[in-house]
């Protein structure tokens, strides 16, 4: 196993990159979705609600399958993505995984934030409206900052789930941690237990880091 540490690191490298870019994208998209869902415009509310119920109720694997095997027929493909950085290849498989994970996780981010929005007392939004803030200002200045504080634990859960969901990409052409593990267990059948343990520890460490960051935010915002 020690001989293959570089493979292990590379596998987790893909896992980590995929997690980071998808986390950012799903946070952004989730915030847009929650603004649509709690906003004053009926059409956007409906679009947001439909998006969340359709995508959230679809298995992640199906979303991957869609983007890998159905979307190309519709002319949607990610073959044009060709980024090569220091031994890492961010190509079609990475881009597809990024899109699938971000679209999927955005639903959970949206719902986590919505639970936070619901936790913000009505009076906060009323007071913000009363001083003349338009809807955007009410959301960005008053409601969302407080909603985010209240949503940190469920947001962390959504992101941790996504971190582990990156392993789905491992069966769709991306040599992230899980795929690397399967390659190694095949080559070194006799060291299976050790290989499993190493990768489990890797995932545990990454998840622990995310948990710590979330805990840090919770502490920092407790005073307010």
């Amino acid at each position: 196993m020690l001989d293959n540490l570089d493979e292990l690191f590379k596998g987790f490298g893909y896992t980590l990159f995929l997690f980071l870019v998808s986390a950012v994208a799903s946070l952004v998209l989730g915030t847009v979705l929650v603004a649509m869902r709690v906003g004053p415009i009926g059409v956007l509310r409906a679009v947001g609600a439909i998006y969340v119920s359709v995508v959230r109720n679809t298995p992640l694997v199906l979303i991957f399958i869609f983007f890998h095997f159905a979307a190309p027929i519709l002319g949607i493909n990610f073959r044009w993505v060709q980024v090569h950085v220091g031994g890492f290849d961010f190509t079609s498989a990475f881009a597809t995984a990024f899109v699938a994970l971000s679209l999927y996780t955005a639903c959970f981010v949206c719902e986590a934030l919505r639970s936070g929005v619901n936790a913000v007392p009505m009076g906060q939004a009323e007071a913000a409206r009363a001083i003349g803030l338009p809807f955007g200002g009410v959301m960005t200045q008053v409601v969302l900052p407080q909603a985010v504080r209240a949503s940190v634990p469920p947001l962390a859960s959504a992101l941790i789930a996504m971190l582990k969901n990156t392993s789905v990409a491992g069966v769709f052409f991306l040599a992230e941690a899980l795929a690397t593990m399967r390659g190694l267990t095949n080559d070194y059948s006799s060291e299976r237990i050790g290989i499993f343990a190493c990768f489990a520890v890797g995932y545990i460490l990454l998840v622990e880091i995310v948990s710590m960051i979330s805990l840090g935010f919770e502490r920092r915002w407790r005073i307010a």
């Binding site: 199906l62 399958i65 869609f66 095997f69 159905a70 979307a71 027929i73 519709l74 002319g75």
Partner: peptide
């Protein structure tokens, strides 16, 4: 038409 093909592809892959 393209959607139908895409749907068929997804369904087939699943089944």
């Amino acid at each position: 038409m393209r959607w139908r093909k895409a749907f068929a592809a997804t369904a087939a892959t699943l089944v």
